[in-house]
Structures are given as C-alpha cells and as structure tokens.
C-alpha cells in the first residue's frame, strides 16, 4: 500500500528481504535448493520439452527437429496399431486390477484373523514385491515354457491342452497379467491389512449380536468400511500397472506375438529407442500422461478423504 511512494532501492531491499531477510527463510531456501534444481532440470524442462517435441519429427541422428504440426497426434489417433495398444493397456490394467483386488482382499482377511504365524505368512506374500520385475518375468517365462515348462508338463500328464502361454497370441495377455498380478498381490495385501485395522471390532461384534452371519458381517460391515481402501487400491493399481507393465512385458513377450501384449509404455519405448521416432514417441508420452494424470488426481482426492475418515 505504502510501497508505491517508497524509493525503488528501498523497495528492492524489502522484496529481497522477503526471500533472505530472516535467517529462517534463508535456511528454508537453502534446504530446498538441491531438490529444486533437480525439479527444474529433470521435471519442469522435460515435461515442457516433451510437449514441444510432440509437434516435431526428430531422431537423435538428425541435427534438428523438423516441425510437423499435429501430424504425430493425427497419426497416433488414426493408427489401428495404437488403438490396439490402448485396448491392450486397458485389458492388462483391468485384468491386473481384478486379480490383485480379489487376491489381496482374501489374503488380508485371512491374515487379519490374527492366527499364529500371521507375520510369517505376510512376510512371504510381500516378497515378490521385493523381487525385480525382470526376475519375475524370467522365472515365470521358464515355468510356463511351452515345451519344457513344469506347468505344461503337468497339463500334458493330465492329458489337458497345454497352451503356448507367452508365445501364443491368445494366451500371451493372460500370461503377463497373471505374472504381474502375482507380484502385485502382496503389495495390496499390506494396504488392505492396514485398512482392515481401521474396521472397529465392536461394529462387527454388534452386527454378530444382531444375528448376522459371517458372510453378512463381511458384506454389510467390512466391505462398506473398506470402501476408501478399495478405492485407493483401485487407483494405485491402475497407475502402477500402466507404469510398471514395461519390465514384465519386455522380458516375457516383447509385446508379441504380433502386438498381442504391446502396451503403451512398451510402445513408447519401441518408437523412441528402437525406431528413433522421438517426436512421435513424445506424443504417445503425452497421451499416457493424460491417462495417469487423471488417475492420480483421483488418487489424491481419495487420499484426502481417507485421512479425514481415520
């Protein structure tokens, strides 16, 4: 208010003193500085440059990007392959969601009984989360080897049909879904277990006294009270599978047979680093970004609500 009448020099000092005037602010800025520099170089600039590059044609071997307008996005949206890849991503994400949701809730309920040895079981269930995606893919690829894999050996011994799993265009998708889901279940079991701890025992007891059976207690007490956790798990699972699908799919199928398991993350990698179509790949990245952005926004909303509940 008074600032307009003050001499410039004084005003500048006042402006600067807002940043560095007191010791506390000085230390605050100093402590934030390392991560801030990183933030500018490896987040702000790349997000902006990626957007920019989406309107250009560029290979690392070219001297400079060539502007192409909306051509990359047009190609993307009109390409049958990209449509296939979006569909694959949806099937993969949905499949993993169902597998992990059912598996995690069942295991968490069993663990929540508090029986002897629960800690040990929980430890075992979580261990795949610590195993790398690559190792997970390699192990399951061998277990499901069409010729010498143990699963097909058993199936043949029972004279059941032994599919080609990762090598079969029909079975490849279920194979990568189950492999990835196998690794994810433990992660979400831990989250569900934390959620179950928030379901008060008194409520369940009250329902039992009112004559509810175990199933009925589960349906009318546990499930509604777990709703915030379930929503969180759903969003987390979608974000995680869209991002982490890469390792498993790359190792097990490389997106094949004939794009049967090619998901958006792998497609982006192939376009950028195998075909060197950096501009086109940047456009793909932005489609992926939009998808994950929406999912994560929902996630933060839910997290805000979750903290209110507990």
């Amino acid at each position: 208010m008074m600032g307009t009448t003050e001499p410039t020099a004084q005003r500048t000092r006042k402006g600067l003193s807002r940043f560095f005037g007191n010791e506390q602010a000085r230390y605050g800025v100093m402590f934030v500085l390392p991560s801030l520099v990183f933030f500018c170089i490896f987040i702000v600039w790349p997000v902006a440059y990626s957007f920019y590059l989406g309107f250009y044609d560029w290979s690392p071997l070219d001297p400079a990007p060539v502007p192409v307008g909306l051509a990359n996005y047009q190609e993307l949206l009109s390409s049958a392959t990209f449509l296939r890849i979006i569909l694959n991503t949806a099937v993969f994400t949905g499949g993993v969601l169902v597998v992990t949701l059912v598996g995690a809730i069942a295991l968490a309920l069993a663990l929540n009984k508090g029986l002897r040895g629960t800690g040990l079981f929980r430890g075992v269930y979580y261990s795949p989360v610590v195993t790398s995606l690559v190792a997970t893919g390699v192990i399951w690829l061998w277990i499901l080897d069409p010729q010498y894999g143990i699963v097909n050996q058993v199936l043949r011994a029972l004279s059941l049909p032994a599919p080609g799993w990762a090598a079969d265009s029909l079975w490849a998708m279920p194979t990568v879904i189950l492999t990835f889901g196998w690794r994810e279940v433990g992660y979400f079991t831990v989250i569900y277990l934390a959620g179950l701890q928030g379901v008060p025992e008194e409520l369940k007891e009250a329902a039992r006294i009112d004559g509810c059976g175990a199933l009925s207690v589960f349906r009318h007490v546990t499930i509604p009270l777990l709703m915030p956790t379930t929503l969180l798990v759903m969003v987390l699972s979608v974000v995680r599978s869209t991002q982490n699908a890469f390792g498993v799919v790359y190792v097990m199928t490389s997106g094949g047979p004939v794009n049967a398991t090619n998901v958006i993350v792998l497609y982006l990698y192939q376009q950028a680093f195998q075909f060197y179509r950096m501009g086109y790949a940047s456009a793909v990245a932005y489609v992926l970004f939009a998808f994950i952005f929406i999912a994560t926004l929902v996630q933060f909303r839910l997290m805000g609500r979750r903290t209110e509940i507990y």
Binding site: Q24, F31, I43, P46, L268, A272, A281, A285, Y286, F289
Partner: peptide, 30 residues
C-alpha cells in the same frame, strides 16, 4: 521453516510425484 513460496513449491513437488518417468524419458535421455 517459513519462507516465501513454500506451500506453492510443496504442491509443485506433489505434482512431480504424478509425472510418470515415461513422460520425461526422452528429454532426460537428451
């Protein structure tokens, strides 16, 4: 610590958590 722009910056950091590595992959490579 209180300093100018702290809360805005914190929201920016939260936003950074949302950015998947695939979006920044190509510029980071460059």
């Amino acid at each position: 610590l209180k300093f100018w722009g702290r809360d805005i910056l914190f929201y920016c950091y939260l936003g950074a958590m949302m950015v998947p590595i695939q979006v920044t992959l190509i510029p980071s490579f460059i």
